[in-house]
Simulated scan of single mutants.
Amino acid sequence: MPLQERLPFDLSVSRPLPDIGPVPMSDWLLVDEAYAGQMAAREHLLDTNRDAVLALSERARPSADELLEVVLSHLPNGFARDGARVVRPDGGQVTLDRADPLGTLGRLVQEDLCLLEKTDGEAEHVLTGAVLCFPAGWRLAQKMMRPLTEIHVPIPEYDATLAARVQRLFDGVQPGRPLMRFNRLWYDDPTLFQPGPRRDNDDRSDPETAPYFRTERQCLLRLPETRAVVFSIHTYVMDRARALALSA
């Protein structure tokens, strides 16, 4: 299981939820030392358990197509583009399949990518598509086509006040100006694919004894043409001692 040694943010800093701020577009997608191992896990899941990690509604197909082009335009250093083929930082080669935009993206970048859209008459953004290889306690099939408030059940911190703040962030995020936050989770098992779902908020590992720390670097980005919001998730897992040292 690939474990990381470093993080692109300071774990010792914590602010009130939703604890989010801007990052440069050049830092939206990242490659770290666990890239090769995580990509191998992603490819295995897409090959053997695709229905559990990828879903796309017809409504979101234009957004998925646009997302593929946006990602290709903002690949981090280490990628090489040769026509319809991309060579990854680990040497793997991905043929661009525009008939399968999310499947292609799942083989290119470490980030899980979720599409959320809001049409006239909808009060909240709705999850309309995703490639989600590394879920932490939730199942994609159970969250598809649901609004933000329902997606966050059973998280008690996600009350009406926080829900309203998050919805304002989704309404206000602009193309080319991503927003970033990170969470803090403790796990007994370092496995990346942990769909759960949790029965309730108490169904978690003990943070005082759990041997692994898991954190998600979560970004919001609006697509300029379809106006869908992309929720990207870069997952980091490290052993307890390393995480505590970074939190000191």
Rank of each mutant, 00 (worst) to 15 (best):
P89T: 15
Q218F: 00
R165D: 08
D97G: 04
I151G: 00
V13I: 12
H234W: 10
I151S: 02
M1I: 09
G129N: 03
R181I: 05
L148M: 02
V87L: 13
F9V: 13
P178E: 03
C219V: 02
I233R: 09
G172P: 00
P8T: 10
V126C: 00
P22Q: 01
P16Q: 07
T209H: 05
E216K: 04
E33R: 01
R214K: 07
L54G: 06
V131D: 02
A136M: 08
L116S: 00
L148T: 01
A80P: 09
T119D: 06
L17M: 15
P18G: 05
L244Q: 14
D120S: 12
P207C: 08
V13L: 11
N77V: 09
A245L: 15
E5Y: 15
V70R: 05
G129C: 04
Q93H: 10
A160R: 12
L115Y: 02
R59N: 01
P22K: 01
P16I: 04
G92W: 07
Q142I: 13
R240E: 08
D19Q: 15
L115A: 01
R181H: 08
F79K: 10
R50E: 14
D239K: 08
L11R: 09
S12D: 11
R59A: 07
I151R: 04
L29A: 09
T209A: 10
K118I: 03
A243F: 11
A163I: 03
R204G: 07
L192N: 00
D203V: 04
R139E: 06
L29D: 03
R61T: 11
D97A: 08
T95Q: 15
S73Y: 08
V126L: 01
E157S: 11
L113V: 02
E5G: 15
V87W: 07
P154E: 02
G106S: 06
R50K: 07
E66H: 13
R88G: 14
F170W: 01
D189N: 12
H44F: 02
L75E: 09
F170C: 10
A40Y: 00
R88A: 12
E225G: 11
G91E: 11
L115S: 06
Q93K: 15
A34L: 09
P175W: 07
V126I: 07
L132T: 03
F231H: 01
V237F: 03
S247R: 15
Y158I: 04
S63C: 09
R81F: 08
A80S: 15
V153W: 10
A40D: 05
T119M: 00
A228R: 03
Q110W: 11
R59Y: 07
R227P: 00
A136G: 06
M25W: 05
L223S: 07
D112V: 05
P195M: 07
R198H: 12
L102F: 12
Q110D: 12
V229G: 01
L105Y: 04
E225L: 13
E66N: 11
R177Y: 11
L56W: 04
V173S: 01
M180W: 06
V131K: 00
R184D: 14
N77G: 13
R146I: 02
L30F: 09
I151W: 03
Q4C: 15
S14Q: 15
